[in-house]
């Protein structure tokens, strides 16, 4: 009976490891980031084009000139915001991927451990897989909450 329970637990761990692994692989947002960067590159090009058009224009309309300057300033601000957004999202995604890596590794080890059920993997073993302080803080909070 105990052997069956243990085998079942290992099976569940193996399935969960595979599912989290699939989820991690689906986190790839390269296409979205690529589009963001192409947009910022386009904005940069348009901004330069506006400047060039103004320099080569015979007209010296002050209203057009003011609007051009305002458009260039707005484009620069949006470009900066997009850069910040892309960078922050990339880091966030990287962090999520690292957490998923950690969960997959833990579940894979639990799926193959040749030890009695419930003793194959400790919270200390899990903590050894962490790659950031955020993970350690979360770990400590759970350990404290569980009164361990």
């Amino acid at each position: 009976m105990a052997d069956t329970t243990e085998a079942n637990e290992r099976l569940v761990c193996a399935i969960l490891a595979e599912q989290v692994s699939t989820l991690r692989d689906r986190m790839d947002a390269s296409a979205a980031f690529d589009l963001l960067w192409r947009t910022t590159a386009l904005l940069s090009w348009l901004s330069g084009l506006l400047g060039d058009l103004s320099r080569h224009s015979a007209s010296t309309n002050p209203v057009l000139e003011r609007e051009r300057a305002e458009a260039i300033a707005e484009v620069a601000e949006i470009r900066g915001e997009l850069d910040r957004l892309a960078f922050s999202q990339a880091q966030r995604q990287d962090f999520a991927r690292q957490i998923a890596d950690c969960v997959v590794t833990a579940l894979e080890r639990m799926a193959v451990a040749e030890m009695p059920a419930g003793t194959s993997f400790s919270s200390g073993d899990l903590a050894a897989l962490y790659v950031s302080d955020d993970q350690r803080k979360l770990h400590d909070a759970v350990v404290q909450r569980m009164g361990c």
């Binding site: 790839d28 390269s30 690529d34 910022t40 850069d83 892309a86 960078f87 990339a90 995604q93 990287d94």
Partner: peptide, 18 residues
């Protein structure tokens, strides 16, 4: 150097822009 392709692309974009 980063094992995350997104981070590599992101860092490259920022540095090339500068």
């Amino acid at each position: 150097l980063d094992d995350s392709a997104t981070m590599v692309m992101s860092l490259s974009h920022i540095l090339k822009g500068a």
